[in-house]
């Protein structure tokens, strides 16, 4: 038997056990969030930076449910529509916990939540200069993805389809082109609708998948989290195994020799 090389998933020098990264938004409550994260097997979660509700001291906080010492928090700039806001958010995140590994997301349009790639590239350059390790949400344009890598991005995160749309992988060709050219991890982010979408992304050769709405908005989020865990493992194994060649016509599975 051929000994397989250990399949390690590494982002900016950090080893991760799971190739599934999950978002922590949109859940009913923090208990459900924690249960879903646990069921998903993810060891990295995205989090947002927001004002503390200072007048409601009893309000529960995320860190009480998900220990940042046990699970990697990936601060995200979701909701930022320009470079200035995104940089401010990530600098605050770094001050909060010393996080250098962050996810940059600069949105350009409220209706599609499509990334503003000009501001995204500018922000990446500044953050890299400041010592951040930046995972970058981007369009599925191979040229822009390459540009981000050249600017020092730690991971390229092209969208499968618009954030929260659940439309799945809409442009497999572009995602494949990005995978083939990239030396840093490629993680499909946004638009994944169901577990099989994650498998497809992993079979294409993505290094990982980031999912939030598809789990949180499922009728049974914890069960869906488990489905995604299996889907990502399955897709990765399928990619490593290497699929058979497609044929236009049938090829019998049983030998034609010795037919009676």
């Amino acid at each position: 038997m051929v000994k397989l090389k250990k399949d390690i998933f590494k982002i900016a020098g950090k080893n991760l056990k799971s190739r599934l990264i999950v978002g922590t938004g949109k859940y009913k409550n923090f208990l459900e969030t924690a249960k879903a994260v646990h069921a998903s097997g993810a060891d990295m979660v995205t989090v947002a930076v927001r004002r503390v509700n200072i007048f409601d001291k009893k309000k529960p906080i995320l860190t009480d449910y998900l220990n940042p010492k046990k699970i990697t928090y990936l601060p995200n700039t979701a909701g930022c529509f320009n470079s200035k806001e995104a940089l401010r958010t990530l600098r605050l995140a770094r001050e909060m916990g010393g996080w250098k590994l962050v996810k940059l997301e600069v949105l350009g349009d409220k209706k599609t939540l499509y990334p503003n790639m000009i501001e995204t590239i500018d922000s990446t350059k500044i953050l890299v200069k400041e010592g951040f390790k930046v995972m970058v949400y981007c369009t599925d344009d191979p040229l822009l993805a390459k540009k981000l890598e050249d600017c020092g991005a730690s991971a390229i995160m092209p969208l499968a389809s618009p954030i929260g749309s659940g439309l799945g992988l809409q442009n497999k060709i572009n995602i494949s082109l990005i995978i083939k050219q990239s030396k840093v991890p490629v993680i499909v982010d946004a638009g994944i609708g169901t577990a099989s979408d994650a498998t497809i992304a992993m079979e294409l050769g993505c290094d990982g998948v980031l999912v939030n709405s598809a789990i949180a908005n499922a009728k049974r989020p914890i069960l869906m989290a488990k489905a995604f865990k299996d889907a990502v493992i399955s897709g990765r194994n399928s990619y490593l195994a290497g699929r058979m060649i497609k044929n236009y016509f049938a090829i019998p599975s049983s030998p034609s020799k010795g037919i009676i």
């Binding site: 922590t24 989090v47 947002a48 930076v49 927001r50 004002r51 503390v52 995320l62 909060m96 929260g164």
Partner: peptide, 10 residues
């Protein structure tokens, strides 16, 4: 003064 913390997000 702005005081921020981490909350759930995608």
């Amino acid at each position: 003064v702005e005081i921020v913390h981490f909350i759930g997000g995608g």
